[in-house]
Nucleic acid binder design. Structure first.
Length: 587
RNA sequence: GGGGUCGUAGUUCAGUUGGUUAGAACGCCGGCCUGUCACGCCGGAGGUCGCGAGUUCGACUCUCGUCGGCCCCGCCA
C-alpha cells in the first residue's frame, strides 16, 4: 500500500496515528542534525521531520532527497511544538515524524521551481507542461474546471437534458470558419472535417424527438490564435424543443447562477439585465459591452451638423456620425499622451481624434473656435463634462466610430483603473440583426448562422429590407467577454429557402452542403433552439486569467504548435501514400 | 498576410557611447548546522549573449535576414 492518507488532508484529527504518505519532495531543509521535508500531493503539503534520535538510518537516507523526488514516508502524526507552528499552510499545526522512507523515484533537477509565484516564460511552461501542471495554483484551475463541468452536467441532467454524442469526423460545410480536414484512406481524395460545433447534428437530434440535448464537446476551427482562441476548444452545447427565446434565456440564467455559486461561491445579479444589439452598439460601440464602468459613447451628430468645424459637418452630411466620450479626469494628459490616444484611434481605423479639455472656464482646445458658445455648452452638458475631464470625439462612418471609441473606452478604463475585478456583470444582448451586407462579396451574410430564425414581426422585411430583419438570437456577455450565444432555429422549410436565397446560396448548393438538415426539417421538425457556451472562457473568467491557454491542460502556442509534443510534425511517406496524399511545395 | 514586443547562466533579469575578464538573485553541487518552513552560514561549478550574414581594428551592443514566445489587426461564434 502506497499511502493511507493524502498529504494535504493530515490534520489534528490524525494525531498519534501512524500514517503512510506518498508524494513529491516540495522542499528539503537540511539542518545537519535535523532534516525537514515538505511533502506535496494534489491535496496539499505536509512537513515531514527526520530526526536521528528516532531513526539514525532514516535520517541518513533523507540526506539524499532532492526536489521532486517521489517518496513514501511512514511515521506518526505529531503536534508541532507551539512556537514552530506554521499558520501559512493548512497542515501547519502538525507534522509527521518519519520512521521509514522509500525513494520511489528520483527526479532530474526541474528547469524551474514548482512554485506558485514563479514567473516563467510561456514557452518553457508549455515545453515542460507536466511540471507546470504540478504547481498547486495551476492545479486549482483544473480542479475548478472539473467542478464546473460536473455542476453544469448536474444542472442539465436535472432539467431533462440528455447527453448525446455527435461525430468528430464529419462533413465540411461552407459557412463560418476554416475547417480542419482529415483525409479519408478508404475514400481516396475525400476528406472529413473536424466539427466547428455540433450545430447541425443537435438540430437533427431535435427532429429525432430527443427534446433536450447537451454535450460538453470539443470543437475545431482552423483560424489564427488569440489569447481567447485556440484551434481546439470546448463548448457547452445544448438544444431544446418546443421553447421560445424567453424560456431558454431564463433557464440558462438559472444555470449560470447556480454553477457560478456552486463552483466559486459567486453571486451574480439576478435577473440578468437585457440590452438590444442596437443599444449596446450605440452606447458602448460593441455588441459585447463591459458594463462594469461608464465612459459611454454619446451621439453628437446632430450638433455636429450645424457647427462650423468642417471635418465634423462634412462627415455627417455624407451619412457618417460624430460620437463623443468623456474621459473622466484626464484633462491632465500631456499633448504627448493625447497623441498616444490618437495613434491608438488611428490604428483602429480613425482618421484622427478630436479633443477638448473641460476647465473651470469652459471647454479648451484648438478646435473650440469652430463652435459657438451655446454649442460648446451643449457639448459639455451632453457629455456631463466637469472641470478636469477630457472630451474625445471621433467622426467617421458609424462602424468606424463605434469601433474606435469602443476600443478607446476599454483602454481608458484600464488606464484609469475603473474596473472592479471582483465584479461579474452579466448581460443578455438580444435583437441582433439577421444579416449584414458584405460589400466585397456583394451579398448578405448571416451574423449568427444561416439557420437562425428571423423575428416573427420582421418577416415582412425579409423581401423588402433584409438588413432591418432582427434575429431570434442572443448572446450572454459577462464583463465584456462573450460567454455564449444561441438562437431559435428556423424549422420551416419555406423560411429557410428564403434565407438561403438572400445569402446567395443556390438551391443546389444548399442541397449539396447541408441537404441532410434541410431534408430532416421536412419530416416534422419541432420548433427548437439552443445555445453554446465557451467553456474555456467560462473557466478563465472564474479563474481571473486573461488567456484560455491557462485553463487548457495542453494548449497550443500562437503558431498552433504544441511545444511539449512538437505537433504538428512531418509524417512518414508511407502514411501519406496510404492516404493518397502527395506533398507539393506551392510557392 | 501585416503591426508591436521580447529572446544574455538551469530560471528571472541587469549589462554604460561599440572596447579587452559578461554580472546579480534564485536554483544546482560540496561542506557546516537539532525547530526550520523562501532555513542560515562558507565555498564551488555553470554562458554558442536564439541562429545566420554584414558593418567595424573590435559586436551582447549597430544593420539586414531568419527562428521562436507573447499581444494585436486581418481572419474567426
Amino acid at each position: 500500500m502506497f499511502r493511507t492518507h493524502l498529504c494535504g488532508k493530515i490534520s489534528e484529527k490524525n494525531l498519534d496515528t501512524e500514517v503512510t504518505l506518498s508524494g513529491w519532495v516540495h522542499r528539503r531543509r537540511d539542518h545537519g542534525g535535523l532534516t525537514f521535508v515538505d511533502l506535496r500531493d494534489r491535496e496539499g503539503i505536509i512537513q515531514i521531520v527526520f530526526n536521528p534520535q528516532l531513526s539514525e538510518s532514516v535520517h541518513q537516507q533523507a540526506h539524499a532527497l532532492r526536489s521532486e523526488y517521489v517518496i513514501q514516508v511512514t511515521g506518526k502524526v505529531a503536534r508541532r511544538p507551539k512556537e514552530t507552528e506554521n499558520l501559512n499552510i493548512p497542515t501547519g499545526k502538525v507534522e509527521v515524524l518519519a520512521e521509514a522512507l522509500t525513494i520511489l523515484n528520483r527526479a532530474k533537477t526541474p528547469p524551474f521551481l514548482i512554485e506558485d509565484e514563479e514567473d516563467i516564460s510561456d514557452a518553457l511552461r508549455l515545453q515542460y507542461r507536466y511540471l507546470d501542471l504540478r504547481r498547486p495554483a495551476v492545479q486549482q484551475i483544473f480542479i475548478r474546471r472539473h467542478k464546473l463541468s460536473q455542476a453544469i452536467r448536474q444542472f442539465l441532467n436535472d432539467h431533462q437534458f440528455l447527453e448525446l454524442e455527435t461525430p468528430s469526423l464529419t462533413k465540411s460545410t461552407p459557412e463560418g470558419a476554416r475547417d480542419f480536414l482529415v483525409p479519408s484512406r478508404l475514400n481516396p481524395g475525400n476528406f472529413y472535417a473536424l466539427p466547428q460545433s455540433p450545430q447541425l447534428f443537435k438540430q437533427i437530434l431535435m427532429v429525432s424527438g430527443f427534446d433536450r440535448y447537451y454535450q460538453i464537446v470539443r470543437c475545431f476551427r482552423d483560424e489564427d490564435l488569440r489569447a481567447d482562441r485556440q484551434p481546439e476548444f470546448t463548448q457547452i452545447d445544448l438544444e431544446m424543443s418546443f421553447i421560445e427565446m424567453d424560456d431558454i434565456l431564463s433557464l440558462m440564467e438559472e444555470m449560470i447562477l447556480r454553477v457560478f455559486s456552486e463552483v466559486c461561491d459567486r453571486k451574480l445579479p439576478s435577473p440578468f439585465p437585457r440590452m438590444t444589439y442596437a443599444e449596446a452598439v450605440s452606447r458602448f460601440g460593441t455588441d459585447k459591452p463591459d458594463t462594469r464602468f461608464g465612459l459611454e459613447l454619446v451621439d453628437l451628430s446632430e450638433l455636429a451638423s450645424r457647427c462650423d468645424f468642417k471635418v465634423f459637418r462634412s462627415i455627417v452630411s455624407k451619412g457618417g456620425v460624430v460620437n463623443g466620450l468623456n474621459a473622466k479626469n484626464l484633462a491632465r494628459l500631456s499633448r504627448k499622451e493625447i497623441e498616444n490616444l490618437t495613434n491608438e484611434a488611428i490604428q483602429r481605423g480613425a482618421k484622427g481624434l478630436a479633443w477638448m479639455k473641460v476647465t473651470e472656464d469652459g471647454l479648451e482646445a484648438p478646435i473650440t473656435k469652430f463652435f459657438s458658445a451655446a454649442q460648446l455648452n451643449e457639448i459639455k452638458t451632453t457629455l456631463e463634462g466637469e472641470p478636469g475631464d477630457l472630451l474625445l470625439f471621433v467622426a467617421d462612418k458609424t462602424q468606424v466610430v463605434h469601433d474606435v471609441l469602443g476600443t478607446l473606452r476599454l483602454s481608458l478604463a484600464k488606464k484609469l483603473n475603473l474596473i472592479d475585478e471582483k465584479v461579474f456583470n452579466p448581460l443578455w444582448v438580444t435583437d441582433f440583426p439577421l444579416f449584414e451586407y458584405d460589400a466585397a462579396a456583394k451579398r448578405y451574410t448571416a451574423i449568427h448562422h444561416p439557420f437562425t430564425s428571423p423575428m416573427d414581426e420582421d418577416l415582412p422585411f425579409l423581401k423588402s429590407e433584409p438588413l432591418k430583419v432582427r434575429a431570434k438570437a442572443y448572446d450572454l456577455v459577462v464583463n465584456g467577454v462573450e460567454l455564449g450565444g444561441g438562437s431559435i432555429r428556423i424549422h420551416q422549410e419555406e423560411i429557410q429557402s428564403q434565407v438561403f436565397s438572400l445569402l446567395g446560396i443556390a438551391k443546389e448548393e444548399a442541397a449539396e452542403k447541408f441537404g441532410f438538415l434541410l431534408e430532416a426539417l421536412q419530416y416534422g421538425a419541432p420548433p427548437h433552439g439552443g445555445m453554446a457556451f465557451g467553456f474555456d472562457r467560462m473557466v478563465a473568467l472564474l479563474s481571473g486569467v486573461e488567456s484560455i491557454r491557462e485553463v487548457i491542460p495542453f494548449p497550443k502556442t500562437q503558431k498552433g504548435i504544441c511545444l511539449m509534443t512538437s505537433a504538428p510534425s512531418d509524417v512518414d511517406a508511407r502514411q501519406l501514400k496510404e492516404l493518397h496524399i502527395k506533398k507539393e511545395r506551392i510557392l
